[in-house]
Computed example of a mutant assay.
Amino acid sequence: MTTPASLSALVVIPARMASTRLPDKPLALIAGKPMIAHVIDRGMAAEIGPVVVACDHPDIKAAVEAAGGTAVMTDPDLPSGSDRVRAAAEAVDPQRAYDIVLNLQGDVPLIDPEAIRAAFDPLSDPAVDIGTIATEIRSEDGRTDPSFVKTVGTPIGERRLRALYFTRATAPTGPGPLYQHIGLYAYRRAALDRFVSLPPSSLEKRESLEQLRALEAGMRIDVGLIDSVPMDVNTPRDLEAVRAIFASRVSNPS
Results as ranks from 00 to 15, higher is better:
residue 155 P to Y: 08
residue 132 T to P: 09
residue 181 H to L: 11
residue 214 A to V: 14
residue 170 T to V: 00
residue 162 R to D: 14
residue 71 A to G: 07
residue 223 V to S: 06
residue 12 V to W: 00
residue 134 A to N: 05
residue 99 D to M: 02
residue 187 Y to N: 00
residue 177 P to G: 11
residue 12 V to F: 03
residue 28 A to W: 02
residue 62 A to Q: 12
residue 71 A to H: 05
residue 14 P to L: 03
residue 19 S to N: 14
residue 190 A to R: 12
residue 141 D to F: 15
residue 50 P to W: 01
residue 132 T to Y: 09
residue 89 A to Q: 04
residue 4 P to V: 05
residue 89 A to C: 09
residue 173 T to A: 15
residue 138 R to L: 15
residue 107 D to L: 05
residue 13 I to M: 04
residue 220 R to A: 09
residue 150 K to D: 06
residue 104 L to A: 04
residue 109 P to C: 10
residue 142 G to H: 11
residue 112 D to V: 09
residue 65 E to P: 05
residue 90 E to K: 07
residue 227 D to E: 15
residue 29 L to Y: 03
residue 246 F to L: 15
residue 27 L to I: 06
residue 4 P to A: 06
residue 79 P to S: 10
residue 65 E to I: 06
residue 245 I to E: 12
residue 90 E to T: 02
residue 30 I to R: 05
residue 224 G to K: 08
residue 131 G to H: 12
residue 137 I to N: 05
residue 243 R to G: 09
residue 181 H to C: 01
residue 97 A to W: 01
residue 203 L to W: 06
residue 121 D to W: 01
residue 166 F to G: 01
residue 61 K to F: 08
residue 165 Y to I: 01
residue 10 L to C: 02
residue 230 P to N: 07
residue 20 T to K: 14
residue 166 F to H: 14
residue 4 P to F: 10
residue 202 S to Y: 08
residue 45 A to G: 00
residue 177 P to V: 06
residue 46 A to C: 02
residue 198 L to T: 11
residue 105 Q to D: 13
residue 199 P to F: 08
residue 49 G to W: 02
residue 79 P to W: 01
residue 91 A to L: 01
residue 83 D to S: 14
residue 15 A to T: 09
residue 16 R to L: 03
residue 249 R to K: 13
residue 104 L to F: 03
residue 154 T to F: 10
residue 149 V to K: 11
residue 12 V to L: 04
residue 102 L to A: 06
residue 238 D to T: 03
residue 4 P to I: 08
residue 175 P to M: 08
residue 241 A to T: 12
residue 15 A to C: 04
residue 188 R to F: 02
residue 217 A to Y: 12
residue 223 V to W: 10
residue 198 L to C: 15
residue 26 P to T: 07
residue 144 T to H: 14
residue 250 V to D: 12
residue 69 G to F: 00
residue 1 M to T: 08
residue 196 V to L: 09
residue 227 D to T: 15
residue 95 Q to G: 02
residue 89 A to S: 05
residue 63 A to D: 02
residue 45 A to C: 04
residue 46 A to W: 02
residue 70 T to D: 00
residue 59 D to V: 01
residue 11 V to N: 00
residue 25 K to C: 04
